[in-house]
């Protein structure tokens, strides 16, 4: 049709306008900010490589980068492995209605304050906290669990595990049952069936779960700050510190852009792997 379709545009345009203004706009502007300068605590629009060359040559930045990457990768592997038995049970060993109920239970944490939950772990895992008190009764400990990578990972699991279990369950539940029966028929054992039939069939869903886990862990500042003691700081903590103290937005923007590039690379690699045809 040649004349503009007012009706269609009414529904099509809002999201385009809004997302360009407040989603694409901010992200592009952030890239621009990474080239700005700060003088006398005021930001000046410019196109200088100063922030980039400064951040890229600082040891603390690269320490933070590899530490964050390592933690997020560990979190991804951990969450994927911890979630799988639960997702397997939910997908194959319980009734449909039980599955729905447990998934509903797993959705609830998304809507409870992550901050409060983290603080709960802080209290539970403290030297004189509940977990050590219980372990003490059993004759163990006390252990130092806070201000360590362990603490951070507990926080990451709090954030990501329910989501990973849900995504894995949904993809496993969609695996064609007759494939599994066929595998059993051909004499494949339980473990063999899981690794030669179920995992490959549910590959896309499993990888998407892992990607989300990685994104969430990589970008989270609460767990490494409160449970990991921010020693060393992770990239998100670096962003907060540079932004909140000293108004160094351009340097924070550099960190953010590096994070974005890392995430895009990771996500792209993972998705390519997920959809690659097996030979």
């Amino acid at each position: 049709m040649n004349r503009p379709d007012v009706y269609a545009s009414t529904w099509r345009l809002p999201v385009i306008v809004w997302q360009c203004l407040f989603f694409v706009g901010p992200l592009l502007f952030m890239i621009a900010v990474s080239f700005f300068l700060v003088k006398n605590y005021r930001m000046q629009e410019a196109f200088e490589m100063a922030n980039w060359s400064r951040m890229m040559t600082r040891g603390y930045f690269w320490d933070a980068y590899w530490y964050t990457l390592g933690l997020a990768a560990a979190s991804t592997v951990l969450a994927t492995c911890l979630a799988f038995p639960a997702a397997y049970g939910l997908a194959f060993k319980v009734s449909e209605s039980t599955r729905r109920w447990i998934i509903f239970l797993l959705i609830i944490p998304f809507f409870t304050s992550y901050l409060v939950r983290t603080f709960s772990w802080y209290v539970l895992l403290a030297e004189s906290g509940v977990v050590n008190a219980i372990l003490g009764k059993l004759g163990f400990g006390p252990y130092t669990m806070l201000n360590s990578a362990f603490g951070t990972l507990v926080g990451y699991m709090t954030l990501t595990l329910p989501l990973v279990v849900i995504l894995q369950t949904l993809s496993l539940a969609n695996v064609n049952r007759s494939l599994i029966e066929a595998a059993h028929n051909l004499g494949a054992g339980r473990m063999r069936t899981i690794f030669t039939v179920i995992v490959p069939s549910a590959k896309v869903g499993l990888i998407i779960g892992a990607v989300f886990c990685f994104i969430l862990s990589f970008g989270d500042f609460v767990a490494p700050y409160y449970l990991g003691g921010s020693k060393p700081p992770t990239l998100p903590i670096l962003i907060i510190d540079t932004t909140k103290s000293g108004q160094q937005w351009p340097r924070a923007a550099v960190v953010a852009v590096v994070m974005m590039v890392t995430l895009l690379t990771a996500a792209f690699t993972a998705i390519t792997m997920a959809y690659r045809k097996r030979r």
């Binding site: 502007f29 998100p236 937005w249």
Partner: peptide, 13 residues
């Protein structure tokens, strides 16, 4: 997009 990145981008924009 990680919230911390959205936060910084939103603040600047």
């Amino acid at each position: 997009i990680p919230l911390i990145i959205m936060a910084l981008a939103m603040l600047a924009w």
